[in-house]
Design a protein around this nucleic acid. Sequence first.
DNA 1: TCTTATACTTCATCTGTCGTAGTAATTTTA
DNA 2: TAAAATTACTACGACAGATGAAGTATAAGA
Lengths: 110, 110
Amino acid sequence: MLSSDTMRGYNDTIILSLLLEEPSYGYEIAKRIKERSNNKYVMKETTLYSAFTRLEKHDYICSFQQGKTMGRRRTYYEITAKGRNYFDQKHQEWLLTQEVVNQFITDNRL
Amino acid sequence: MLSSDTMRGYNDTIILSLLLEEPSYGYEIAKRIKERSNNKYVMKETTLYSAFTRLEKHDYICSFQQGKTMGRRRTYYEITAKGRNYFDQKHQEWLLTQEVVNQFITDNRL
DNA sequence: TCTTATACTTCATCTGTCGTAGTAATTTTA
DNA sequence: TAAAATTACTACGACAGATGAAGTATAAGA
């Protein structure tokens, strides 16, 4: 339902919000996003995995391998202290964004 | 204060929201955005003018020239019926976006 | 055994934003 | 009245994030 443009700018933060709960990996994160949004938002695989790369590059998350049995590899990600900081900052930014956008779009109408 | 990434996806809608009030032109729109957001958001000129081009291409707005005295040209823009429709649609999308993002970012914390 | 689900990776492309720069008229101020 | 600031744009190249399409490979279920 929702996609791309509207969510751009919040994908990283959404991922971090889930890693705040517990370390996880791509496939699972994707499922949780879909579930928790009541199927309203499905993050594309490529978007998700490239977000991981970006977040790790900035040291907001770090990774470790853990194959359940073996063979099928999973890359788990864990949020770092720096990542928690970044999340808090983005959280504040989101509150402000809502305020500002509502000033134009919602408060203005209906 | 706010910028780019966070607002991307809402710039067009913000512009339309102002044109909903009355026809206007670039420089004035820019000032109103700054004012109405209490200096929290300043839309870059290039962003603004390329948004005009895009919006006009989609027939969400239409333009007409009007120099006050003459010489200094201004291009005024007016929202179309199609543009009003699009705005309403984006308005709904924004409400949904808030719901979904809050599900992760805000409700989750603090 | 064939299909479906899990778990990614690579790559080329597109779109919107931004920085830099430039043009030109009009109004303010020194 | 000359210089500076404001108004009102336009052009261009670069970049980052999102996407579609395709591919790889293992594991579980029918």
